[in-house]
Write a protein that binds this DNA or RNA. Sequence first.
DNA 1: GCCAAAGTTAGAATCATTTTAAATCGTATT
DNA 2: AATACGATTTAAAATGATTCTAACTTTGGC
Lengths: 152, 152
Amino acid sequence: MANTDVDEALTALQSRRIRMTPQRRTILTYLVTHHNHPTVETIHEALEQTTPNMSLATIYNTLKLFVDLGIVIELANGEDGVHYDYYSKPHYHVICTNCGKIADVFYPDFQKDAKKMENEAAQQTGYQITGNRFEIYGLCTDCQKKNASKGK
Amino acid sequence: MANTDVDEALTALQSRRIRMTPQRRTILTYLVTHHNHPTVETIHEALEQTTPNMSLATIYNTLKLFVDLGIVIELANGEDGVHYDYYSKPHYHVICTNCGKIADVFYPDFQKDAKKMENEAAQQTGYQITGNRFEIYGLCTDCQKKNASKGK
DNA sequence: GCCAAAGTTAGAATCATTTTAAATCGTATT
DNA sequence: AATACGATTTAAAATGATTCTAACTTTGGC
């Protein structure tokens, strides 16, 4: 249930002594209940209706906090700035290089494979690993069609 | 040899009918002979000595071209903008979240593992895969020491 | 309920990247 | 080797996402 997800995340924040503000709760709830890989702008516009006057700076601050806490991840994206994703189940992303559309990819051993890459990194470099970012790039099905039809 | 690497890359460009300009040759040579994960600024400063008056816009344009051609990859990096890497042997990167230092990670099956992730992505989403980006984040050994000594 | 520390706000500032328009260059074709 | 045209380069200006600032407000422990 989406609601327990929010509660879970809130509990996680409390246990880390993070102050709970209405803004943080609102942004967290938005992220948990929307899997649309929003940008800062997307979030700002979406919340404008229900919570006017929320500063862009607050959204930037809050997202940075969540990323540092590891409950949200950043997705780089050429076209229109950074996208964010509430990271519950381990997965990675495919990003369309033409239109920027983002899709999720899940498979059973992904976490194992990711850990392997992290372990290799730790062993070879001595870095103390804190996170990762896996992105695949390609053309989405829509953009494939568009390219084909314009005879490219 | 560094030189054959440059020649190889030049041949690759020629076969794709990419015009060869002195600027492109210079930047390509810099990338092939330096594995320092430079930013645009780093490249600009380094080339200032040997090639004054090279415009920043040209460096941006050229790097974008090389990335599109797949011979160079982008590395996201919080602190100081985007870094670039001439991508000869398959590998991925560990990035220090504190100081931004970047290290390479190689292991025998990496390419196989990366392909697996690409294939999963293609099957699940129908995207036509053109590239990927794998980054691990952590604290480099220097920053671990600094943190420890200041009793953090 | 009080208070210090932490968070929020609106607007200004920053700075990496992109755009512009004019000048120059690379190369395919004679 | 000369021509012509599209592609590339340049410097400067414009853009726009993100960060900073300073004043104000809120949170949570006592």
